[in-house]
């Protein structure tokens, strides 16, 4: 995994499935948490990424994961491993109503 810009800042990215979460979740959640990490570095709440089509997706316990869930997982892993903007996030949170 790559080193993040996070030698100086801790970056948190939400990957979400709905418009309301995309618009509001980072701002809402960030208000409830300290703006510095435990090591004293400031926290940057990145704009949430939305993966459409997963909100009304039906989850099953049998069989392999669906293509929609794989797409969601790929987005989470890609953000943690590489980062859309060239720096991986330090923490990726997948949040969605499925």
């Amino acid at each position: 995994m790559k080193t993040s810009v996070g030698d100086t800042v801790k970056r948190i990215r939400f990957v979400v499935t709905g418009d309301l979460e995309r618009k509001a979740i980072a701002a809402s959640i960030s208000a409830l948490f300290p703006q510095t990490a435990s090591d004293g570095k400031p926290v940057e709440w990145l704009r949430a990424q939305k993966v459409p089509a997963a909100t009304t997706h039906r989850l099953t316990t049998s069989g392999p994961p669906s293509g929609t869930m794989k797409a969601l997982a790929r987005r989470v892993i890609a953000e943690a491993a590489e980062g859309e903007d060239g720096s991986p996030a330090d923490l990726v949170i997948c949040s969605g109503i499925v």
């Binding site: 418009d19 995309r22 618009k23 990145l46 704009r47 990424q49 939305k50 993966v51 459409p52 089509a53 797409a71 790929r74 987005r75 892993i77 890609a78 953000e79 491993a81 590489e82 980062g83 859309e84 903007d85 060239g86």
Partner: peptide
């Protein structure tokens, strides 16, 4: 980020609004 792009099929990423979208707030990281 090209390395980030490599994690996806570009068509799938485009279809999922991951490149550009009519809802442009979703475009930029």
């Amino acid at each position: 980020n090209p390395e980030w792009l490599r994690q996806f099929r570009l068509g799938e990423l485009y279809a999922d609004d991951g490149i550009v979208s009519n809802d442009d707030e979703n475009v930029r990281g």
